[in-house]
Design a protein around this nucleic acid. Structure first.
Lengths: 194, 194
DNA sequence: GTCTATATATAGATAGAC
DNA sequence: GTCTATCTATATATAGAC
């Protein structure tokens, strides 16, 4: 009879996760609360604890959720050229900034790093390494495709791109505009082109 | 009789500011409290309110204090060559990171931006512009001294250096090492050299 | 300038009813 | 899965004594 489980478009848990990411990106880890998310959902904060036993649980879920989205978007790019990949990747962060000057969850949690549990710290490092490795691999692909300068320092360039993104997001927020970030990342990619 | 005011090497207020900056740089604005600073000073938190009426007052003082230190260190460099200035400036942030993986107070408050009073937000923007202007001016000096590539995009380069610093500080904390930041900034300066 | 005491708000978290 | 009620800890901040 294949009783199909009712699959609501958005479960409470999924909605809570979305709101959590929103507040993480706009307020930081220590400035949002179960109360804030619960109010937005129209439920009590005690009910939220049914879905996430502790704030650490929520934090870990937020990291895993963001990581899954990252992996998925990278997966979708797998058949593109290195240059196309780099451009699309930087655009993800430009759109993030355009959306209420949001920051990367990873960048936010780097600032709050010393205030979060060790487990979260470890997940952050793991995720950061994934991003770093993807960039290095993509730059290598670009070298093979001869679309990037052949004397490129891969590790340096990958780190510079990552840092420019994170730092650029911070600057966009303080300045209240994302155009500079967009121009900066665009020019950065242009500068490593052959 | 010129009664010389007793000038203790470190007043309670000055010590509180130092501790405040320390906790701001390591924990973030929303994760440190009057209690934490008071405990460290061996006084009660109510006593701290004598020196800083509110947390906003303390926050503003922390920004002004950091800005004063920045202005002073820039002032000291005024007779140096552009390249020397750039190198010294980046070293300030390398040392910051080496010291317990601290972040720039400005970067921290950029993340906490939406949670601080409007007055603090304005001061942050003002300060950021000062840093930006100093960098652009210094790059111009480098062009005049013919020590930098003549086709340099000044605004882009200034923004890239600022972003690399802020983003690099975040990455150093997550990775638990500052060497990559040091190498990155060193290579970044090298790359704009003539 | 520092203290005790207190007001008020909010945080994360749990117990147990429905 | 959500509720009410409650616990405990901590936050910013103030009043008034010393």
């Amino acid at each position: 009879m294949n009783k199909v489980k009712q699959a609501p478009l958005t479960t409470t848990k999924a909605q809570a996760l979305d709101l959590g990411r929103h507040y993480l990106q706009t307020l930081g880890y220590n400035a949002f609360s179960f109360q804030l998310i619960a109010d937005e959902l129209g439920i009590k904060k005690a009910s939220l604890h049914y879905h996430f036993a502790s704030k650490e649980d929520l934090g870990l879920a937020l990291i895993a959720d963001y990581e899954a989205a990252y992996i998925e978007s990278v997966e979708k790019m797998k058949d593109l050229s290195a240059l196309q990949k780099l451009t699309r990747m930087t655009r993800i962060f430009c759109r993030m900034s355009q959306d209420q000057k949001k920051l990367c969850p990873l960048g936010v949690l780097a600032v709050d790093f010393n205030t979060v549990p060790a487990k979260m710290q470890k997940r952050l490092l793991d995720f950061h390494k994934i991003q770093q490795n993807w960039l290095i691999t993509t730059l290598k692909q670009g070298l093979k495709e001869k679309s990037l300068k052949k004397d490129l320092d891969l590790n340096f360039t990958a780190d510079l791109i990552l840092a420019a993104i994170q730092g650029g997001l911070l600057m966009a927020r303080v300045r209240g505009e994302s155009a500079t970030l967009e121009n900066m990342l665009e020019k950065l990619i242009k500068d490593i082109k052959r």
